[in-house]
Nucleic acid binder design. Sequence first.
DNA 1: TTGATTTAATTAAATGTTTGTTTAACTTTG
DNA 2: CAAAGTTAAACAAACATTTAATTAAATCAA
Lengths: 208, 208
Amino acid sequence: MEYNQKQLSILEAAEKLFASHGFHATSVRDIAHEADVNIAMISYYFGSKEKLIEAIFLKRIFAWKLTLTEMLHNSARSYVERFDSLVETYVTRVMGNPCFNLMMIRAQIQEDIGVNDLIHENKKEVHEVIKAFINEGQESGVFNKDLDILMMVNTLVGTTNHIMSTRHHFQRLSNLEHLSDNELQEYLISHTSNHLKNLFKAILIHEA
Amino acid sequence: MEYNQKQLSILEAAEKLFASHGFHATSVRDIAHEADVNIAMISYYFGSKEKLIEAIFLKRIFAWKLTLTEMLHNSARSYVERFDSLVETYVTRVMGNPCFNLMMIRAQIQEDIGVNDLIHENKKEVHEVIKAFINEGQESGVFNKDLDILMMVNTLVGTTNHIMSTRHHFQRLSNLEHLSDNELQEYLISHTSNHLKNLFKAILIHEA
DNA sequence: TTGATTTAATTAAATGTTTGTTTAACTTTG
DNA sequence: CAAAGTTAAACAAACATTTAATTAAATCAA
């Protein structure tokens, strides 16, 4: 799990190219060229194109699970604070790593890329953690009963991913074409997380 | 725009394969085999693999724009009824045509497939129609002011697409593995559209 | 520290498939 | 009998991966 500079160049280049052109449309030649290494280095270090994409996923998924669990178990903060922080952290993470998250979306859609089982296993664990947190908040009387937690998670993930993956359509539709990529990213983080927090608060803590 | 049986077989096979394996991972040989036609027929009828995918998009997009406009302009129904019908019709359409919608999602993510401009143009028109409808509802006092319509549309589209494209993950997480594909589809249509209607109603017609 | 020897890193070239598209011959149809 | 439909075979280009040769780095006894 420890990579040298050349391996990191390959991982970064692959993530970028897989994200914008897709796994199958990206040749190992393209990756080697983008990373400025010889073609054979990819087989030498990672074995194959398939194993390369697996390495990318394993690295990121592990880190996210850790962040999430620590955040929701932080009992120093109120349930509402922790929920807001969940939304904001998730949105920030997706908007901040568009390349990786586009890869992830594509891998879930595609049935033939080997990492699908890995992703499902991770989804399940993440869902359990969030469900446990919200149930705890319900028992302590902060959150409403009768919440469809799975649907809420799907709204969080679906909305955020959709806005991220079509952000340039969004930019044009909002007349924000004067913004730089970084400015757009900041804008999307604040607007998306505020929108979602409002939406969820309406069913989480207000009466029906 | 009028296709014979052989052309329809090709279109259907291509839609299915592009959806599950992606554009680049699907060879014209695969399509020819799935459609049970000779390889050369694809070039003969559609010119190229690129023009084949364009034909698929043009056919579907035109039909959806027509349905939507007619529905929202039907002044015999109340604003709330028309809004509910918008949500329900959209969800039904996405869940009912997973192949095509997976293709659409992928095309938006991928920058190199030629249909991206076509999709953006369509998105813009659809957004204008929905915006005009909601503004009308606001002026007649049915809907709240200060709505971020673009964010709402992104939540509708993002949530629905996400649930559709990860429906088998969803099925496992909900312990619904005993359902057939058709039963699952029915379940997803009703649950997703009810969830979204509730969510939107909380910010559309209830006070802040 | 030196020099011998092994290991790891790197390369250009070659390998054998698979790709999208075309061709030229053949059959069916109006 | 010409036009449209259909086919198997052929095409060059691009593909992922391997090979064999070369260089750099590491190891270690003297």
